[in-house]
Nucleic acid binder design. Structure first.
Lengths: 343, 343
DNA sequence: TTGTACGCGTTATCAA
DNA sequence: TTGATAACGCGTACAA
């Protein structure tokens, strides 16, 4: 069977003895049209199985109904959840999402943005790569008057919409929680990279200590890549160095997990000997033994927020976009790894 | 600053005193053009900062360089990894991926496919929803001569490219492994749903038992939703019913995890009292205590394979697409939950 | 090797 | 309220 030629607005126009412009107006809800013709057009469209050609529409109108979305890694729970949030909002507004990943490589990031522009997306939602220091590709987006929303990994160098969580607050809550559990010598795992989010978590840790009358101790702060192996290494150093500590607040669940393994291997009880708190609320945190207390970043909500900022920008007068920064409040999810039995 | 009008092939043509068609040919690697003009065009294009308008190109050529990708849930490790695999291959061939999720709702699935068609994607890669029983929306895709590749959740009712893993083989390996560890009364957790993949895993379990001279015992098979809670329930039944068993092979890591929790709560040792094997190789499996043996489905490779099938179909003579089914061999990843110390 | 001419399907502008 | 016409930017017969 030959697949029949797709029907266009001209086919509908011909059948109704009107012109294509009339059909177009009827289909787009243009008010300057009579009720009768509108109904006739819609009926004919249904009967002829008409499907609008968005490409033609995009060429003419300049709007593709596409959002370019760039993440470092698609298959990480945090990012895929953000994509999910964006997709939900976008779909409900009849927009589609194109995803690309940078794998933290600057060149990929540049190329992805360029590809998005070639595809004539209506705007971009992105998290910038760890190694990104130049922002010309993003500036091009803004120069073209397209909405750009950054999430999680942002930069003050771009005047545009941003969505982040309050890392300071998350760390402050985590540290305070440990103090309230009776911990006094609290270790912190942080990152070597001078990224804002880790600096903020460190600041939250320090301030929580000070606010509770505990003097921060530099020898309790460990810097690394925050992966599982780093957590293991730090914990081994703590044990071998016979450091006196009763809790660990790690800026990443992975490093916390590594520490938990080493602690248990050395016969230390979590949480009674060492209480443990991570950050990210990765899905695995509820499956560890004991389950790991962590800081929830609400990634789906973060994606929804980013999408909302995006559409606000899209619908506002282009010359009056006020770069808006939305800060999401994190939540401490207390699990057994930090809950001490009352003394 | 006004953002300057985007340059088109006409701008390049004007500058070089040639026509737009010449420029188009030069840009597209058409051989019917002199070396000199080609170089001149490329040079001018660079100088004028020319960026091709893919929308115009798509309207004219009928190819959008877009793939529609439909998954049940974006933020699950298995699916996001598949998206990653598809994205990698697609990007390398200058294609982009539009993602949508069905959330296992049939209507969403239909709408997503329709939206993809309206966006004039060059084809679709999809995993069908659990509750999908009609396939007209997919048939439309095929009727239009567009490539369609199904992965993981497929159906014999559609004559098109498919990528699945060998569920039978995965289950067979898992069960055999448990037998080799000395287990003889092996419980199986399966799904109530009559989906092929669970039937295959059940078949692999049964055949492995029989091939090793163990008679399958119906009272050791538990059917549910394979979520964590189901695993807990099954394990509680096993213990309360004083069932004699020494291993569990679960068709899902989540149910295996639930069972592990209950076993430990009841003082049973994993793996020495009960050896445990899951299925999916979810990221959390390496973080449980003990780490959970599981069956790896190679999701990234699955995505790459799906993308390769897609591009093969795209580039082949449309009338001669041979519906090809690719079966990926899974891998048993042995971790401590099933490794018994030698007796 | 290059130019001419047209069309892809839609929307915007202007006129009626 | 509707029609006629052009244009969005590109690719491709066909002719030269």
């Amino acid at each position: 069977m030959e697949h029949s030629k797709k029907t266009t607005i001209h086919d509908i126009a011909e059948r109704l003895n009107v012109t294509a412009s009339t059909v177009s107006r009827a289909l787009n809800g243009n008010p300057r049209i009579s009720d009768n013709t509108r109904k006739a057009v819609l009926k004919a469209a249904r009967e002829l199985d008409y499907e609008p050609n968005q490409i033609a529409s995009a060429l003419r109108s300049g709007r593709t109904q596409l959002i370019g979305m760039l993440v470092p890694t698609i298959n990480r729970a945090f990012f895929s959840s953000i994509i999910r949030g964006v997709e939900e909002v976008a779909n409900s507004l009849d927009y589609r999402v194109i995803v690309s990943q940078s794998n933290e490589i600057f060149e990929n990031e540049e190329n992805a943005v360029k590809a998005f522009l070639n595809a004539r997306v209506d705007g971009i939602i992105a998290s910038i790569g760890k190694n990104t220091e130049h922002f010309n590709h993003y500036k091009q987006v803004l120069d073209r008057g397209l909405p750009l929303v950054l999430f999680d990994r942002t930069t003050p160098k771009l005047q545009t919409g941003q969505v982040v969580i309050d890392d300071y607050q998350g760390a402050y809550m985590a540290t305070t929680h440990l103090i309230e559990q009776g911990c006094e010598r609290i270790v912190h795992f942080t990152s070597e990279r001078k990224i804002d989010i880790y600096k903020e978590r460190y600041r939250g840790y320090v301030n929580a200590l000070q606010d509770h009358g505990i003097e921060p101790n530099h020898s309790l702060v460990f810097s690394g890549n925050l992966q599982l192996e780093d957590g293991r290494k730090h914990a081994e150093q703590l044990i071998q160095g016979k450091v006196d500590f009763d809790a660990i607040f790690s800026a990443s669940d992975y490093a916390a997990m590594g520490a938990m393994q080493v602690l248990k291997e050395n016969g230390l009880k979590v949480p009674d000997d060492v209480a443990l708190v991570g950050f990210l609320n990765e899905p695995f945190t509820s499956f560890t033994d004991p389950p790991l207390t962590s800081v929830n970043q609400f990634p789906i909500e973060m994606g929804q927020t980013a999408a909302n900022l995006f559409f606000n920008a899209l619908n506002s007068d282009k010359k009056k976009i006020i770069p808006k920064k939305t800060v999401i409040q994190p939540e401490l999810i207390v699990r057994a790894s930090s809950l001490r039995t009352a003394p």
